[in-house]
Nucleic acid binder design. Structure first.
Length: 326
DNA sequence: ATGGTTTTTACTGCGTC
DNA sequence: GACGCGGTAAAAACCAT
């Protein structure tokens, strides 16, 4: 006996879940007594005519939220149009003014009306392109935000990146280039300017654009906006790498000193800053008797072991010379 | 496109644990 | 014998011209 009740309740929930759309269909019947069901949209309930069992309650009323007492009132209150579509950038909601100089009844317009329509077309077009830039910007800023947080870049870098992007947009640098590409390039430039440099490889990880496009776009916007981006300072990589390698503050300080020594000897120009930083850390760890292998450093710095070897010899040499002189 | 510089790849030998 | 390290040559990448 208990089994049967369980089964009926099961079948009931099944009906409710899978056939929700058909509850007011004539073919529906009461699970208890088999009587026909009636839908009361005022109460949001579906109930049985015979036994009064409420089959479904708290339904969502999909009807209009207003009431109309005659057809003219219905015309006034009803407000629906064509469905929106995401296929169009503005969901198809922007205004279009037809090119034909005809009114709604197909009659030709007077000369003054024609001129008026022409002016309206012009302005409408202007506002629409304005909006397209807004949307463009919005998407780009979203991308910048996403990439910046993926790379752990602080707020001010995002700010700078968005300023750069806005300028690029304003100078009409976008046509022919992807939003994503310019956004990535802007962020790359901003990060470098703010001394939180990220390598091209790192940018590539979080961006959807190819390396080639990124470098090309980057060069382009740097040139066109005449941004001044100094070559990355090796020291700005030092803290990140030391912490990635779990090395002490002492190593970090020594590494900085080595970089400085190299700078004074003019060893920095032309060499990759990342390589210098990696080598400085390796050398510093050696001097502090902390264990790191070249391959570990090359791993976190994303630089070859050979480069580390070549650089760190030079660094120690420069540092040695300084110590001799002192 | 070209040439010069830097970095990477691949391979080798040496010493140590 | 595996590993870390140092060195080398050639290839590849990068950059300015």
């Amino acid at each position: 006996m208990s089994e049967t009740t369980i089964r009926t309740s099961d079948s009931r929930t099944e009906q409710l879940n899978s056939q929700r759309t058909e509850t007011n269909d004539e073919s529906e019947h009461c699970p208890e007594c088999g009587g026909s069901l009636v839908n009361d949209s005022e109460r949001g309930e579906t109930s049985c005519v015979d036994c009064g069992l409420v089959v479904e309650e708290d339904e969502i009323d999909h009807g209009p939220e207003w009431r109309a007492f005659d057809s003219s009132e219905k015309d006034r209150k009803s407000r629906v149009g064509a469905p929106t579509t995401t296929m169009m950038h503005d969901k198809g909601l922007s205004t279009n003014i037809g090119w034909q100089n005809k009114d709604a009844y197909g009659r030709s317009l007077s000369a003054s009306q024609r001129k008026k329509m022409q002016r309206l077309r012009t302005w409408n077009e202007r506002f629409r392109t304005q909006n397209s830039k807004e949307r463009n910007l919005k998407q780009a800023l979203g991308e910048i935000d996403r990439m910046a947080s993926a790379l752990g870049l602080p707020e001010n870098v995002r700010e700078t990146a968005s300023v750069i992007y806005r300028r690029a947009l304003k100078e009409d640098l976008l046509p022919g280039r992807s939003i994503e590409g310019v956004a990535t390039a802007a962020l790359y430039a901003a990060a470098r300017q703010a001394n939180y440099p990220r390598s091209l490889d790192e940018m590539e990880q979080v961006s959807r654009v190819e390396r080639m496009e990124l470098t090309r776009t980057y060069r382009y916007i740097i040139r066109e906006l005449s941004l001044e981006v100094a070559p990355a300072d090796p020291e700005s990589f030092v803290p990140r790498f030391t912490s990635d390698l779990d090395l002490s503050d002492e190593v970090e300080r020594t590494a900085r000193r080595l970089v400085e020594a190299a700078r004074e000897d003019g060893l920095l120009s032309g060499k990759s800053p990342v390589g210098i930083a990696a080598a400085a850390i390796y050398a510093a760890a050696l001097l502090s008797n902390e264990r790191v292998t070249q391959s570990e450093v090359s791993e976190v710095a994303d630089i070859s072991e050979v480069t580390i070897r070549n650089r760190y010899k030079e660094l120690l040499e420069a540092d040695g010379v300084q110590n001799m002189a002192a």
